[in-house]
């Protein structure tokens, strides 16, 4: 091998090693890389009582109920499960039924009590005229963006 070939081998080997390390590392910590958990994760989960987590999913159609003051009750769903959420505070502009949200909070009995709600926008852009034609009855078309961690292992 010439010197140049040796250098090339060394750089390629370094890159290959780092890639393997990155893949192993991110696979091992993939749970921690998730920005939020889904209702399915929580339904099948072993959540410690009172643990602070983020819950992500679609706001179910027809589930939003305004309470006293700024209290809002709604239900968050992914493709398989749903979970009732209670929140007191100001909601982001994009919050609406059928849209994605990420809520920070904890489980209180069977209800998720949120202290922060962020809107999660999907990747679709269209003018209002087109959106009216496309509206699907239950918003299920966009539930795929909420990935369950699978098997809650």
């Amino acid at each position: 091998m010439t010197k140049r070939q040796k250098r090339m081998a060394a750089v390629l080997l370094l890159l290959a090693g780092l890639s393997v390390a990155a893949v192993l590392g991110f696979t091992a910590f993939s749970k921690n890389m998730m920005y939020f958990q889904t209702p399915s994760d929580i339904a099948g989960g072993k959540l410690p009582e009172g643990a602070r987590i983020r819950l992500g999913g679609l706001v179910e159609k027809g589930s939003v109920q305004r309470g006293e003051g700024l209290v809002v009750n709604f239900s968050v769903a992914d493709c398989d499960a749903n979970l009732p959420v209670r929140y007191e505070g100001i909601l982001p502009d994009l919050f609406r039924e059928g849209q994605g949200v990420v809520a920070m909070g904890h489980m209180d009995g069977k209800t998720f009590v949120a202290d922060e709600v962020l809107a999660k926008h999907d990747e679709n852009y269209m003018p209002p005229e087109l959106a009216e034609k496309l509206t699907t009855p239950d918003g299920k078309h966009s539930c795929a963006q909420f990935k369950s961690m699978g098997g809650s292992t």
Partner: peptide, 14 residues
Amino acid sequence: YSVDWWNSLHQGST
């Protein structure tokens, strides 16, 4: 691929 591999607040590719 972060938006495909993991749950993120950022939306996927358009």
